[in-house]
Each structure stands twice: as C-alpha cells, then as structure tokens.
Design a protein around this nucleic acid. Structure first.
Lengths: 206, 206
DNA sequence: TACTTTACTGACTTGAAAGTCAGTAAACAG
DNA sequence: CTGTTTACTGACTTTCAAGTCAGTAAAGTA
C-alpha cells in the first residue's frame, strides 16, 4: 500500500540532509535515527542500509556541510585581485559576517562537542578545514608582505589571528544571541581595522 | 561490612569534583552516573540524594569550576597599577596562556556542546562569565583611553577583540593539539603586539 | 543500653534508542 | 506475463543508563 519509490541515487543525500538538521537542532546524542528517517521520508532500516552506524552518518554529515564552504573560501581568495585591505574590508567581512548565521555554525558546535570522541574525524577536519584555511590566509598575507602593503611577517606566520573574532561570532550566535544580540559586522570591521592599523604601511585603501 | 563514613558536609563537593573529571573526559552524554559515584567513592544512590538529576549535577559542576577563575581574573585586573601595555604583556598573557592548558578548557567544550539544550545555564554563563569578563576588560581599556595611552574608543567598545585568540587556543588544545601543537604563547604575544601596534600612542612600554 | 534519626547502599524498575532481519514489493530482464 | 533481484519496511531484540526505594547501619540522644 505505501507507494515507496526506489531511488537509490538520491537517498544518501536526502538522509544526510535530514540528519544535518537534526544534529544541528539537537546535538549528536539527542538525535534519534528514527526521527532522521522520518524527516527524510524513509524507514529507519534504510538509514542503516546506507550508513552502517550513527557515527558513520555523523561523519558523512560533517563532510558534506563543510567541504563546499571551504572550496568557496579558497576560491574567493584565489579570485581576488586587489590589495589585502580591499579583500579584508570587502569579501572577507562579507564571508565572515555570513558564517555565524549560516548552518556552518552548527558544525563548529558539533566538532567541538564530539571531536574528542572521534579522533579520525577531528584529524580530517584539521587537514581539510583548518589547514586549508590557514594555508590560504598565509598565502594572502605573504603576497601583501611581498608587495610591501604590510610590514612585518607576523600575519603570514600567524594567519589564525584573522579568524578569532569569526569563531567568537559563531559561538555567540549559537549560545547568547537570543539573550544579547551581537553586531557581528561591527565587531568584524573593528577587528579588520585593528589589523590593518597595526600593519598597513600606506593608508590609502578603502 | 562496608565501613562507610557519613560526611554530609563534604559529599557534594566530592561528587562535583568527580563529576567534573568525568564530564571533561567523556562529555555530557557519555558520562555515566555510576562511574561518577565510583570515582567519588560513593554509591550511585547518594549522587541522586544530593543532586536530583544528572542535569542538576552538570550545572553545579559548571558553576563550581568557573566562578573561582572569573573571580581571579577580575582581581588581577583590579590589582594592576601600571599601563595597559604592561598588563597585556604581563598578567594577561600569563593568564591567557594558562587557560588552554587548564581544566577550564573543558568547560568551554561543555558549554558549547550543551548550552543550546540548557537555556538557563547558558544565560547564567553569559551573565556570570561573559559579561563579567567583558565589563572588566571594557573598564581596563576605558582607563587606558582616558589616560591617553591608547587612541580611539574601539577597544572599550569591543573588548571581546582581546579574547578571540584565547578561545582559539582553548579549542585548539581540545581538538588538534596532539596532531599539530600550537604555540599558544607566541600566538598570544603576536595578538597583543598587534593590538598595541594598532592603538598605542606612545611606544615606550615593555 | 535502647531508641530515633538519617546518611548511605545497591538491586531493581523503567524507558529509550541503536541496530537487526525476515518479509514486501518496485523495477527490470527475458 | 513470469521470475529474479534488491531497495525498502517496520516490528523486534538488545543493550544500557537514569532514576527509585526498601533496607542498613552510623551517629546522635537519653
């Protein structure tokens, strides 16, 4: 009687999508796989057919959500032609202001929460997210140093200095925003101004 | 036969201490209360006598770990007499470099992980941790602005700019340090240098 | 010593969710 | 149309931990 289509191609993606909303809403432990199944419009058994365990599904979810964003970030850096200052004040602030509102913030929560329990996932996250972002930023700063736009080699050596406020923004949105909203954009602008104020040699850029 | 002392006074603290190590090691969901009881040298039933639910115990743990550190941080700021620069390069870097190694980092993980499930705890954390730290820092920056040590009012308005790298340091130690160690102190020094470089008027301080 | 109070115990109940699998029917081959 | 494969189902099993409570004995009282 139930008119269930057989759609082998689409099922995994649909299950991953459903699982992500559940994980994002409830965290790992409080996500029930029959709920995921229901949301995906599928029986519980099918979830286990495509993903042997809850843990495996979780890892698939993290990878699926994270990879496209990192690709986009790298592409944005590669595509930029102008000065460092114009990149930071333009595309970077846009990107960084959007992140705390985006689904990506839930990945941060999930990784912080579950990372210690899943060393291989954590390592994958480092190698495919953290170090890719770090490398892209280091390259960006390096070019600005070589061109003489900024002095000192601090930034190319400590590229993570740029993203501290982004992390704070994501955590804030996750935890405190309903109680005390944070103006992410003002916060990020202040940070970018601070960096450029500390290192910029010529202050001609907008 | 079991020679169990009755020590009503000490039990709660002992249970909280045992619970903290378990929560820190395993996270909320994977912490079993009979394990906590065992670690505290107590029967499972007694845990429930002092804390009605697991959730209540969890909240007690967070409060117990966090409050003394915030007190210490506020006191350190209040006690400092010299310039902003000397505070940041001295006590602040010490404090901030110690944090990611300290048990406090586990609280960050637990709050990020469990916060969304416990709105009242999250709110308490904001009001008793975040806003106390923010206020203390804002005061510190305000004084430096008033005395003419730094220009602009950016820092007193965005005091969180100071602690982005501290958060990154804690998360890094929690997740990636075994795979790729982070030199927290160098990272923090670079950040403090950047802030002072951006805002300091006179560069006479060490 | 006898009696009362209550800190403390641990076997038990209860509920819940991950993971299983025998069965069903949709697609497709011939 | 018939037979075969396999995507899919959902009731069932298994495991496991939070929370309970009847009972025990340590401390206090007289």
């Amino acid at each position: 009687m139930p008119r269930n289509q057989r759609r082998k191609e689409d099922r995994p993606d649909e299950i991953v999508a459903a699982a992500f909303t559940e994980f994002a809403d409830r965290g790992y432990a409080d996500t029930k796989l029959d709920r995921v199944a229901k949301r995906a419009g599928v029986s519980k058994g099918l979830v286990f057919l495509y993903f042997k365990t809850k843990e495996q599904l979780f890892k698939a979810v993290v990878r699926a959500v994270v990879v496209p964003r990192i690709d986009a970030f790298e592409a944005a850096i590669a595509a930029h032609e102008g000065s460092l200052a114009s990149f930071l004040r333009g595309p970077f602030v846009e990107f960084a202001a959007a992140l705390p509102e985006s689904p990506a913030r839930h990945v941060v929560r999930l990784i912080v929460a579950e990372g210690p329990k899943h060393p291989d996932l954590t390592r994958w996250y480092h190698d495919n997210v953290i170090s890719r972002v770090t490398a892209a930023l280091a390259g960006l700063f390096q070019r600005a140093e070589d061109s003489g736009e900024i002095k000192a080699a601090t930034l190319s050596q400590q590229p993570l200095l740029l993203i501290g406020p982004v992390v704070i923004g994501m955590i804030w949105k996750l935890l405190f925003d309903s109680h005390k909203p944070l103006d992410t954009r003002a916060f990020l602008n202040a940070h970018v101004d601070m960096m450029l104020g500390a290192f910029a040699i010529s202050r001609s850029d907008a």
